[in-house]
């Protein structure tokens, strides 16, 4: 089976509401803010709307950087992106003054060093940008007891720092996959390596699909019979590209160029490819073309005119 690595990576950019903005600005300034609900509970981390009543919440309070573990889980194998690179405990921590708990990592040497009820305090990150990761992790706190009952104090949500309030976050996301295209597409890609284009015929309606996806979208049945198509084909429709897509593979291509739908001979579905070997403003519907392979390529680099007379419209009108 064919397999290839596939990486999906993107920055997730989000704006903040006034409460989240104050909270993340507070973390940057080493201050933990919560929000008070209409019935007097203090939510940390704070939210913009009450999870029970949907009331808009704006009443900010400051809570302590110390708190109590409400549940924990020992993580012997940290994964990419997690707060610590050595084994640690995941914890929900109710900070002193808060009524709800915050998820983070606790840096302790082993599972015997943490229990529900363990007293902990925030270890701040050396560089803080206004993100939940401004809390590097929690660590055990032997000095504070928590039983004195430190209360939440009102806070304006404003900080004197020159950077101003945090108004958004950018969360980097990366997921790694090993992609396998399945039976039909694997066979298609294998044939391409031998400079052949192979489609599949529907056993019911007899249409030939290129590239094959394993099923006929009209009949909903598996396509299995392989049919070699092309190599020549007909341009059914096209567009002129004036701005290059940002892609390293496009570096050697000059704009404007033509991108076209091409119905390969004996195929019942048009595929798309670049047209070259002809001025862009002379490409037309019905133009007969053939693939141009570069030496070690796994798909045609582009299609070029064959010099044959144009195809009659009636021969490809069903494939538009």
């Amino acid at each position: 089976m064919l397999r290839a690595p596939l990486v999906v990576e993107f920055p997730f950019t989000r704006s903040l509401g006034p409460v989240q903005s104050a909270f993340l600005t507070g973390l940057r300034e080493r201050t933990v803010l919560g929000v008070r609900t209409t019935d007097g509970k203090v939510l940390v981390p704070p939210v913009e709307y009450d999870p029970a009543t949907a009331d808009e919440l704006r009443d900010l309070v400051e809570v302590a950087p110390t708190g109590t573990v409400t549940t924990w889980a020992w993580n012997p194998g940290p994964r990419r992106g997690q707060p610590l690179t050595k084994p640690f405990a995941w914890v929900l921590v109710r900070l002193d003054g808060a009524d709800t708990a915050l998820l983070h990592a606790l840096d302790v040497p082993g599972p015997d060093a943490v229990r529900t009820g363990t007293r902990v305090r925030i270890r701040w990150a050396a560089t803080r940008t206004g993100a939940i990761t401004d809390i590097a992790c929690f660590e055990r706190d032997q000095s504070s007891s928590g039983v004195t009952g430190r209360h939440a104090r009102p806070h304006s949500g404003r900080f004197a720092a020159q950077e101003g309030p945090v108004t958004g976050i950018v969360a980097q996301a990366r997921l790694d996959y090993t992609y396998s295209p399945g039976r039909a597409q694997s066979q298609y890609i294998r044939a391409l390596a031998g400079h052949r284009t192979v489609g599949e015929r529907c056993p019911d309606c007899r249409k030939v699909y290129v590239p094959p996806r394993g099923a006929c979208p009209t009949c909903g049945v598996a396509t299995t019979e392989q049919v070699e198509v092309g190599p020549r084909g007909t341009v059914t429709t096209f567009c002129i590209v004036n701005i290059k897509a940002r892609n390293a593979g496009n570096a050697a291509i000059d704009v404007p160029y033509v991108y076209a739908h091409i119905a390969l001979d004996s195929a019942d579905l048009a595929l798309h490819a670049r047209i070259a070997g002809i001025p862009y403003d002379q490409v037309r519907m019905g133009l007969r073309v053939e693939p141009v392979w570069s030496d070690d390529a796994r798909f045609p680099d582009h299609y070029r005119p064959t010099g044959e007379p144009d195809a009659d419209y009636d021969t490809y009108k069903e494939l538009l």
């Binding site: 889980a73 529900t116 990761t133 969360a171």
Partner: peptide, 25 residues
């Protein structure tokens, strides 16, 4: 990636870790 993007997703708490917190509770 289905978690809260502000407070949870940046910490990459995986599905087993979250279920373990629930089990301990």
């Amino acid at each position: 990636r289905q978690l809260d993007p502000y407070y949870l997703a940046p910490l990459w708490p995986d599905s087993v870790a979250l279920a373990a917190l629930q089990a301990q509770a």
